[in-house]
């Protein structure tokens, strides 16, 4: 009896979760199929009214928009490079933290924690001032450097949590066989740590892809402007109104990489998200 009740309850709960997560996504997809004319004149409702549909016109237009294509390029280059560099650096630090005893460990961890809590907006002013003097303003590196710094804490935690699960006896065995700590690290641990590294990379990529504060403050042209900033400046045929449906199409395009990553790696992402935060 209570079992049936519980099952019904769980079923309802699952439905609610799915609605919660997917309804707004469905909405933005639906909006992207409304025609721009209909949107300018007002077309309330979840689905495009009959005759107010645009087919794939908005997508075609978005994918022919140079500014948006360049933003996609910038976002991909900057996010991927920042991810690779950040994870590479974090791997080193996480290994040291998980495996080695050293003075200053607490300092590293505290720094990482403080940075994770850091209000990024309080940095954009001085960073802008610094970047404009050294010529990093409106460049890929000007974005990559802050992305790396701000994803390092997340990557370090996630990785050190993963590293602690690795059977280190194997490393010890290697060391007994005469390998230096460094060789043991490279030959034995790296292959074992790869899944964790991969997870950290996905989370880092999400951060970089999502960033908005640096994206609008440290860029000013298509040369380096990433997708979120480009979206906020999106201009349609009518310069006075945000082209809602066009923007929706662009937003859907920008979300596709995320959905793909989530579809393929959901298990890893969840493990990574919770590993860094809860064990302890």
């Amino acid at each position: 009896m209570s079992n049936v009740k519980e099952r019904v309850g769980t079923g309802v709960g699952v439905t609610l979760i799915l609605l919660w997560c997917l309804l707004p996504v469905a909405w933005i997809v639906s909006l992207s199929f409304k025609s721009q004319e209909a949107v300018t004149n007002g077309s309330p409702g979840f689905f495009p009214a009959s005759g107010a549909g645009a087919g794939f016109d908005n997508y075609k237009q978005v994918l022919q928009d140079d500014a948006f294509l360049l933003a996609i390029r910038n976002s991909i280059v900057v996010s991927l490079s920042a991810t690779i560099l950040s994870v590479a650096l974090a791997t080193l630090a996480a290994y040291a933290i998980a495996r080695l005893e050293f003075r200053g460990k607490k300092f590293v961890l505290t720094t990482a924690l403080v940075i994770a809590m850091f209000p990024v907006v309080s940095l954009v002013g001085p960073l802008f001032d610094m970047w404009r003097t050294v010529g990093l303003y409106d460049t890929w590196w000007g974005l990559m450097i802050p992305y790396i710094s701000f994803t390092l804490p997340l990557a370090i935690w996630t990785l050190s949590a993963f590293f602690r699960e690795i059977p280190w006896e194997m490393e010890q065995a290697a060391q007994v066989d005469g390998a230096t700590p460094w060789q043991a690290f490279r030959k034995v641990i790296v292959p074992l740590a790869a899944p964790g590294v991969f997870t950290a990379a996905i989370l880092t990529f999400f951060f970089a892809w999502n960033d908005f504060v640096f994206g609008i403050s440290l860029t000013s042209t298509e040369r380096a402007r990433p997708i979120p900033a480009a979206l906020s400046f999106f201009v349609g045929a009518d310069p006075f109104n945000r082209p809602a449906s066009l923007l929706a199409a662009a937003a859907v395009v920008a979300t596709i990489p995320i959905v793909v990553l989530v579809l393929f790696f959901q298990r890893k992402i969840v493990a990574g998200l919770t590993a860094g935060a809860v064990k302890g």
Binding site: A88, L92, R186
Partner: peptide, 23 residues
């Protein structure tokens, strides 16, 4: 990519890229 030597080289390359950029 996890070798520090390589990472260091990457950073050096990055630095020179920045320099080249501004030049």
């Amino acid at each position: 990519m996890t070798r520090p030597a390589r990472a260091r080289r990457a950073v050096a390359a990055a630095a020179s890229a920045v320099l080249a950029c501004s030049v």
